[in-house]
Amino acid sequence: MDGEALFIDEVSKSFGPVKAVKRLSARIPRGCIYGFLGPNGAGKTTTLRMAMDIIRPDSGRITVLGHPSTTHGRERIGYMPEERGLYRKMKVRALLTYFGRLKGVDSRRLAGEIPRRLDEVGLSDWADRRVEDLSRGMQQKLQFLVTVISDPEFTILDEPFSGLDPVNLETIRDIMLRMREEGRTVIFSTHMMEQAERLCDSILLIHRGEKILDGPLDEVRARYTTPTVRAELEGDISFVEGLPMVERVERDGAMTDIVLREGADSQELLRALVERVRVRSFEEKRASLHEIFVSLVKENDG
C-alpha cells in the first residue's frame, strides 16, 4: 500500500475573483466509501477535478494513491464527472471498449468483461445499439459503467445519483458497496444527505470552499447529536421535566421529545419513566446528517 487513496493538503483554487476552494485539507483512507457533502457551489466538483489533474490548484498539494496528482497514473482511477458525456453516435459495446482501452485494459479482457457488466445493470439487450437510442436513465447507467469498466482501485463519482430513479439508484448503490467489499475506494459527492447517510463510512462537509467538518460518520454523528429521546408515553408526564437528567421536554402530538442533559444516560431516563407511566415506544434519536448539515451551514453563514 502506498499511502492514502487521496490526500489533500492546504489546497486553494480561485477562478478570477471567485475563491472556489480555500485551504482545504482532507485524508481519504483506502477501502472506504467517502462522501463529499455540501450545497451546490461548495467546491466539491472543483476539488474532485483537481484530484484528477483536470484543473490545477493555485496552491497546496494533492496526492492520489501515494503519487502527486500531476503524475499519477489515470488508469488506476475511475472518474465520473458531474457533466455527463458520451459519444452519442457510438454503439454501446464500442463505447465501453474505447473507454476501457483508454484505461489500458486489453481488448480480450474487455470482450469478456463488457457483457458481464452490461448484464449487471440490465443493459445486455442494448450492447449493439447506439448511445443516443438509450433512455436517460440507461445513459446514466452506461456512464457509470464507463467509469468502472477498468475495475479501478479508486473511483471518484461526482453526483452519481442525480437524475436516477429509485431502481437504478439501487443498482448503482449495490455496485458501490461491492467495490468497497473488494477493498476499493469510492469517493462520491452529493448534496443528497440521505444517500450519504446510507452509504458512507466517512464524510467531508464543505461549504463555500471551506471544510466544515470531516471524519467517520459515527463520530460526526456523536459529535453533533444532542442526546434526545423520542417516546410515546401514556399517563401524566408532567413529572418528566423535573427529572435530574432532563434538559427540556417538547410535546409533538402523541409523541414526546425529551432532550437530555450532557452526560446523562438514556437508560436511567427509561427506568424513571417505566416506574411512573406506560412506555409504548422509546427511541434514542440520532441527528440526521441533514440536520447536522443544515445547522452547521447556518452557523457558518451567521
Binding site: 477535478r49 484528477m52 489533474d53 483536470i54 489515470r74 488508469e75 482511477i77 475511475g78 472518474y79 465520473m80 464527472p81 457533466e83 455527463r84 458525456g85 458520451l86 459519444y87 452519442r88 473507454f99 483508454l102 484505461k103 456512464q143 464507463v146 467509469t147
Partner: peptide, 16 residues
C-alpha cells in the same frame, strides 16, 4: 462536438 457533448471531461479522466 466533444466539448459540447461534455465527453471531454470523461476523456480527461483517462488521458491528459
Amino acid at each position: 462536438e466533444e466539448k459540447n457533448s461534455r465527453v471531454v471531461e470523461v476523456l480527461l479522466a483517462s488521458v491528459s
